[in-house]
């Protein structure tokens, strides 16, 4: 799979309260959540972000609560993927479970700037920076995670398992 788009850049330790503040968690409606995505990190973000954009962040993206509302809000806002130096554990797990593509790459996190146009080759773990003419590699996705993705997320995977 290929994802191509413009990136928004964030720093270290972007927590789930910044991604989707708890004050909006009295609903789990993706469209409602998308209206407030990343609001406490950048209050204009929900109005600036466009369909097909991507996020690039530094270490420990998604730390804090287990709220699946965080990857859901990012996905529902139309973002195709998130790249970070590293992800917090539960966010990582949730993203695969709900089908938000995420990539770990230190190189990409260090070198991509806000507004760069990039292209991710998900199958080969390659991230091309079209604006800068550079290329970075992402950490390979563990086989079990690939299995989850190709099943279409954890729910589909569980369905298949239960069906035997």
């Amino acid at each position: 799979m290929i994802f191509k788009g413009k990136v928004w850049k964030f720093g270290d330790n972007i927590d789930t309260d910044a991604i989707i503040p708890a004050r909006y968690l009295n609903t789990s409606d993706p469209a409602e959540l998308a209206k407030h995505v990343m609001e406490d990190a950048d209050k204009d973000f929900p109005s600036k972000v466009k369909q097909g954009d991507m996020i690039i962040a530094r270490a420990n993206f998604g730390c804090g609560s287990s709220r699946e509302h965080a990857p859901i809000a990012i996905k529902a806002a139309g973002m195709q993927a998130v790249i970070a130096k590293s992800f917090a554990r539960i966010f990582y797990r949730n993203s695969f479970n709900i089908g938000l593509p995420i990539f770990e790459s230190e190189d990409a996190a260090d070198n991509i700037s806000e507004g760069d146009e990039i292209e991710i080759d998900a199958d080969n773990g390659l991230i091309k920076n079209i604006t800068k003419g550079e290329q970075y590699t992402a950490k390979p996705i563990p086989p079990f995670m690939q299995e989850l993705i190709s099943a279409g997320g954890l729910i589909e995977w569980t369905k298949k398992r239960l069906a035997g």
Partner: peptide, 10 residues
């Protein structure tokens, strides 16, 4: 350990 809602569903 903490997980997401979809993990709990499964």
């Amino acid at each position: 350990t903490g997980v997401g809602s979809t993990d709990v569903a499964s």
